[in-house]
Design a protein around this nucleic acid. Structure first.
Lengths: 167, 167
DNA sequence: AAAGGTATGTTATAGTGTATCGTTCGCGTG
DNA sequence: CACGCGAACGATACACTATAACATACCTTT
């Protein structure tokens, strides 16, 4: 497990994002198919909107974008779709931003670790097994049984770091 | 550094919480004295309210409690006091709960790791240098410069875990 | 077609956090 | 002491985030 096997954590700016999106959506389709879940039009649209942004996007921004596609939409509509996507590991919620981002390697029972650039706003998902092992070891040592982990680190992404050094 | 030097991460239920509170407040006083900050009545009251709860407490619960002491209080009053306390490391914000909890070892530039029991609601602060080292190593390996870390793990505390096994 | 579950629509409201502006307080300086 | 300055506080209004509750549509199984 772990998927830093080749792909860089921070995709370069010139990458083909449409392809990321397409890949994510077919991944979601595969999950739904195998688990007998329904990726309805609504859910698919929300997923597409999330992937269309390459930064985490808020529920109300999703709502606005969705309204442009299908007329007036109310908050519960968006939140229900988000609940579905999040609960099946297709989308992650970033707690420190109250925002949502597509998961690059969707699947059940997996909490990613996020690196959030305070400058450009990009959030990269990390999934380092060694790091998780260290975290879980420390937690268990305290006698605690972990269920869900939230690890979010803000700072500067490589690109913005480089820029800030140039000045 | 690190302060699991003796004290258990999860205090037992019979512990003298009034003493925890007193210690926390004199710690805050010490910090403010040394950094030339003003621990005003308001800020002290908010800190006391936070420590009076042994679980993370929401801003509006603080507001309610504060109103009982000094008459009608508006949200900005509470949030300003919280900003002060959080920014100087006297109180931590739990992102996954939108709530606040007193720091056991207050000081600047330190982000704790929190173990939050989904059963009893207690949040224990951990500060494991080894774990942090592993996290930072992984982050830096991705070329990212960390500034602030949020690590929150929900699950079962030792006591609730024990209970759930008995049933 | 009837029944029952899942998904969505709709309205209202709860919960969390800030912008803004005016006033007061503490403190150093002329 | 009066003045001026910045920090802290009060007060109003508002923005943003999320959910409760109930009605309707859809889809599947029988």
């Amino acid at each position: 497990m772990g998927f830093d096997d080749g792909e860089p954590v921070f995709a370069d700016k010139g990458h083909d994002h449409a392809q990321c999106k397409a890949r994510a959506i077919s991944g979601a389709e595969a999950i739904c198919l195998s688990l007998d879940l329904r990726l309805t039009d609504l859910r698919r649209q929300v997923l597409e909107i999330i992937w269309s942004s390459h930064k985490p996007i808020g529920a109300y921004d999703i709502l606005e974008s969705l309204s442009a596609q299908r007329g007036r939409v109310a908050p519960p509509t968006v939140y229900r779709a988000l609940d579905f996507l999040v609960s099946h590991g297709i989308v992650h919620r970033i707690e420190t931003l109250n925002a949502f981002v597509g998961c690059r390697e969707p699947g059940p029972d997996h909490d990613g670790q996020f690196l959030i650039c305070s400058d450009c706003g990009v959030a990269a998902e990390l999934n380092d097994p060694q790091m998780m092992a260290a975290v879980v070891r420390s937690i268990r040592h305290a006698g605690f049984q972990p269920v869900r982990q939230t690890i979010e680190v803000s700072g500067l992404c490589p690109e913005c770091l480089e820029q800030s050094r140039g000045e």
